[in-house]
Design a protein around this nucleic acid. Sequence first.
RNA 1: GCGCUCGUAGCUCAGUGGAUAGAGCAACGGACUUCUAAUCCGUCGGUCGAAGGUUCGAAUCCUUCCGGGCGCGCCA
Length: 554
Amino acid sequence: MTPEQLSQTIVDALSALVDRRELALTGGIPPEVRVERPKSKDHGDYATNIALQLARPAGLAPRDLAELLASELKASPAVASVEIAGPGFINITVDTAAQGEVARSIVEAGASYGASDALTGKRINLEFVSSNPTGPVHIGGARWAPVGDSLARIFSALGAEVSREYYFNDHGAQIDRFSRSLLAVARGQAPPEDGYVGDYVGEIAAKVVATEPHVLSLPDGEAQEVFRRVGVELMFAQIKQTLHSFGVDFDVFFHEQSLYDSGAIERAVARLTEMGNTYEADGALWLATKRYGDEKDRVLVRSSGAPAYIAGDCAYYLDKRERGFDLCVIMLGADHHGYVGRLMAMCQAFGDKPHENLEILIGQMVSLVRDGTPVRMAKRAGAVIFIDDLIEAIGVDGARYALVRYSSDSNVEIDIDVWTRASSDNPVYYVQYAHARLASILRNATQLGVVSVPDDFDPRLLSHDREGDLLRALAEFPRIVQTAAELREPHRLARYLEATASTFHKFYDNCRVLPHGSEEPADIHRARLLLVEATKIVVARGLGLLGVSAPERM
RNA sequence: GCGCUCGUAGCUCAGUGGAUAGAGCAACGGACUUCUAAUCCGUCGGUCGAAGGUUCGAAUCCUUCCGGGCGCGCCA
């Protein structure tokens, strides 16, 4: 009995009451009834507030409606008992056998447990990180790397066709500043006033000189061009390598420059003009974003004739849509929240629907603390924390998990000491340890010759409280995945895994799975082994959706 | 000044209108001859920033205020 099945049981009960004219609902029967896990054990296995919600349309007092529904629900063999509490909550206790069936169905589903076809046929473009190629990926841009990648994995599990994309801003003045900075450092001069500083500038400059030894004898203009061409290429390579080692592989690295080379910019400008959403003023071409809710209109093509930055955004968006993506999601740091209005307006200027075709997610800032003092993050202030530093300090799994376990809505402070210190402080180990324990039990079972047979499994044997807790936790998994997708919040999955790991550890402490020493394997051992298999599937699957490894041993 | 966003235990954070607001860490006290003690059990810890409002019910929705972060260019 999963929450979804119980929801259906309640809907069926409502239908039966309506069919027999014992109940009349003005708004009809709701297609879905929400079932929750009560916080208190006194409130049963599951609870629903449906009687409170339907009291008005039914023209009944909440408790009277609850009574009516309760007596109908009691007829279901999967329901052990029903109680009405408070203003009209219906608290349901599920039959042990029905509960135990969850273990069997998970093992039978295997790695596809939690997957669905909720998003089948949907094409989703996910753009994230998109850090400028003028330096390594810093921690701010890094937040979306594991979160965006995890979202991609979750959407895929629900059947969507997903593209992970990285937009390289390799066109524009910052590239000039970068190449001038490289040149200056290579010549041992002070970097330009508006240039980039940091150890990486020197490293890249040295690599350019190693590749093109003659560069230092060239005149300024030619030398800078070499630094621009080779330096940016090296930066691309380094960024890609970093992300790859972080387990984040993009399907498309999109170069802003390509939009200029292909004429895509002009086409986008022409399209926006066709739509009647541009006008000329002060010698420039403006995009009328204000009429679509932006705070003011934006320059699309400058009076010099050069397209403004937003022209690239427009062309890139148009390109994505023309490649057939129904939904484009752009993930930005809080320092870019000011772009939301203009990007949403741009979407409408193309005749698209905001929030349906374009969605923008804003992630609050991540700050790092070391020795109790904040680590500065501004890219041009030498003391920057890069994603490479974070990986080196706490490992790929730790870094991914540390960034993905918090809501993107909240400002997060990551204490490097905590995540590098004793592993028990680290939530990722807690979950991974549960997986390693599960794997260990399965190894020992093989050695002892204990085998679980899903076809010959008695679900009633899993009657211990801790077994029930674990079964209910496992049954929640598909809904957690679904919710994480709907809300674009992978952290829910991480929190779920921590809670489920805890539930498993408690089960492990109370319920011996394998026979002791000379004891003969019995049905209870085989039943619990099946539960262990089911739990391992869920934990492995959950970690997989977060892009974190599930170790067999620790 | 305008705008966006956040504010929950000593710290870091959960909580998509439900019941007595939760977890980890920190502090203190327990549990290993048995499937991994990277675990488990217990104790301690709260004016959900403040005040109003909406309703059967608000940490959650609305308004105002306070505090932190960020943004407001024919830069990218």
